Amino acid sequence: MEVAQGLCGRGALVTGAGKGIGRAVAVALNRAGARVTALSQTKADLDSLEQECPGIQTLCVDLGDWEATEATLNTVGAVYLLVNNAAVALLQPFLEVTKEAFDRSFDVNLRAALHVSQIVARQMIARGVPGAIVNVSSQASQRALQDHTVYCATKCALDMLTKTMALELGPHQIRVNSVNPTVVMTDMGRLNWTEPQKVAAMTSRIPLGKFAEVDDVVNSILFLLSNQSAMTTGAMLPVDGGFLAC
């Protein structure tokens, strides 16, 4: 597979790998020959992933817990490829945003990405090896969406984190990029977007007139991890059918 250049045999860590995009990325990296470690806070999801792909190592930890995350990731072998996919979407109207939703959202969507990246990047630098990091952001980082106040804020912050990481890690030959999808047809996405009026209101703003499939996002992530994007860092790659172009 052409897009998989540079993935075979390399250690890869995927967070939020129990379901949806993260799980699909972990499976795709495994099939591309990478040595995959899949991280999730839901053990049942990890158990089913191990059954699906016995070669994948799994780790169960809540990334909102700084100390537990550090202790767990110190048990992982050499990582060259990192996908920060773990996220929560706690949707509330602006006037009803709670401290609990705000803190949990920033803990998982932003702080965890920073922390995990720090741990992995320090290990890369200590080994003197190049690497690639992909943060899974969203079109919500650049467009205001109803009831998405905190989610939009976390993803906007994640995009800037991506840029500053690219700036500071570039001299160590560690590339950092993000993917910014529209609504993705994961199992959860299909459940949440069944109402025809709601779907039409969103797809009418997408020039291609449709939502993204999981493979659309996975293929973009694999590209950014691979040698085919060797000169790309600090980029936000829309996977949105043109939503952000309008």
Rank of each mutant, 00 (worst) to 15 (best):
V14Y: 11
L82T: 05
F243M: 12
R122A: 10
H172N: 09
C156H: 14
V134F: 13
N109Q: 06
A71Y: 00
R205Q: 14
S40H: 02
A212I: 06
H115F: 10
E96M: 14
N180W: 00
D147Y: 04
E96H: 09
L145Y: 15
L13Q: 02
E2L: 15
A24G: 03
R175D: 04
P130C: 15
V179D: 06
V27A: 10
M160C: 07
A112E: 01
T162D: 01
I221F: 09
A201K: 04
V116P: 07
T72Y: 07
P93D: 14
Q142T: 08
D240E: 09
L224E: 04
V108T: 14
A230I: 09
Q57N: 11
K210G: 03
G209M: 14
V27F: 06
A34R: 01
L225Y: 08
A28F: 00
T42P: 00
T149Q: 07
Q173L: 15
T72H: 03
C246F: 02
S178L: 08
V79A: 08
C152Y: 07
D45C: 02
T232Y: 06
V83T: 09
A235F: 02
R175C: 03
R175W: 02
G64W: 05
S137L: 03
Q5A: 12
Q92M: 12
D47V: 12
M1C: 09
M165S: 00
P181R: 08
V176W: 03
S220T: 09
A166R: 10
M231Y: 15
Q92P: 11
N84E: 15
L90C: 01
Q57F: 00
G11E: 07
T203P: 01
A140I: 05
A153F: 08
K210M: 14
L191N: 14
K210W: 12
G11I: 04
V179R: 08
S48P: 06
E100P: 11
V134T: 08
G55V: 05
E67D: 08
A153Q: 10
R10P: 03
V239K: 04
A101F: 12
G77P: 00
G22V: 11
S229Q: 02
V97D: 12
A212R: 05
H115E: 07
C156K: 13
V176P: 07
M188A: 13
G209D: 11
T98M: 10
N219E: 07
E96P: 03
I119Q: 13
A78V: 00
C246E: 02
E2Q: 14
C8H: 14
A34K: 00
P54M: 04
P130Q: 14
L169N: 08
R127P: 10
V79F: 00
V136L: 12
Y151V: 03
V176S: 02
N177P: 11
R143M: 02
L29V: 00
V25E: 12
D107C: 09
T149R: 06
N85D: 13
Q197D: 13
A121H: 00
M236T: 08
V136G: 09
V129L: 13
V176D: 13
N30F: 06
R190C: 07
F211K: 03
D62S: 15
S40R: 05
